[in-house]
Design a protein around this nucleic acid. Structure first.
Ligand SMILES: [Mn+2]
Ligand SMILES: [Mn+2]
Ligand SMILES: [Zn+2]
Ligand SMILES: [Zn+2]
Lengths: 153, 153
DNA sequence: ATAATTGTTGCAACTCGGTTGCATTTTTGA
DNA sequence: TCAAAAATGCAACCGAGTTGCAACAATTAT
């Protein structure tokens, strides 16, 4: 869903977030920028290929940093692996569809909640067996103890 | 959110699903029946305690069977562990809140989509940093190949 | 009643996603 | 250019979940 993005966007993203630019971070960011679906770490590693042989620990650390700075979103899956996608203004928060059979993740159009029922019913090319709505953040009892980490919806 | 449930409900649930009753399945089911939040496998194991020492593999197999038969729902989390809750008529599909700090899962009230924005804004005892809406099922290409497994929303 | 079959459990070993500690390399900034 | 700080790579580790197989329990056939 992220379109019309050029190579220079990766550098801009990093320096706007106040993150030092390294070849590894730029490589990972470029893959996320041109992706049209959320990516797992394994997919990112495969996309990097042998040309840029980045250690998996480095990838996890980069993704963790990007998520903390609000550059990317992290999406959970019942399969255990997490998925990542850009969290830009052009790519606002939206539902996802994951196939029970092949595990493929696809992005659904962002929509106001009031339009949700119609969208779900109109998606007759999917067979829906589970709708998951998870809201995460800080609960009341934890809110007072931790005063760090800004909200990044 | 499951209330007014007695010991006999576990047996009824099993025989209604056409599943043979064993002491292990009844023990796991009773824990899920009296739970007020989604439970992880570890929490279930701790609840079972030493009185009914069930192997973790057995618990996973029981939960997998229950999910296939539509007895329980499975909820993904970014932490890696999955959570389980009853999927009864009295406990319809609903959003969940998971705390970024302590990881606690709580059930939110089931609601039509049109009421979602108000609910989220009214929940000022939580600090929301992520709303996740995941729809899972079969994609178009997989729908034709696999004709098994009924829908269990 | 007994034997054969089927289904369920337990144990061990394993896979896979992700993390931690530490030494080495790279980036930054004076 | 050079030192301090940050980032990477490697190895070893951890936790969630799975697989294979033997032991056990419950059904069914003889
Ligand atoms: Mn998406
Ligand atoms: Mn719930
Ligand atoms: Zn598919
Ligand atoms: Zn909390």
């Amino acid at each position: 869903m992220v379109t019309n993005l050029k190579h220079k966007d990766a550098l801009l993203t990093l320096q706007k977030a106040g993150i030092s630019k390294t070849s590894q971070r730029l490589a990972v960011l470029n893959i996320l920028l041109k992706a049209t679906t959320p990516l797992s770490v394994n997919t990112i590693r495969q996309s990097l290929g042998t040309k840029a042989n980045i250690d998996k620990v480095t990838i996890y650390r980069i993704l963790s940093l990007f998520r903390q700075r609000g550059i990317i979103r992290e999406i959970a899956s019942v399969g255990g692996a997490n998925y990542f996608e850009m969290a830009t203004l052009e790519n606002p928060l939206h539902p996802h569809f994951s196939c029970r059979n092949c595990g493929a993740f696809t992005c659904l159009a962002p929509l106001p909640f009031t339009q949700a029922p119609e969208l779900i019913l109109s998606k007759n090319d999917y067979s829906i067996d589970h709708i998951e709505i998870n809201i995460s953040g800080l609960c009341a009892c934890c809110r007072n103890s931790t005063k760090t980490q800004k909200t990044m919806i």
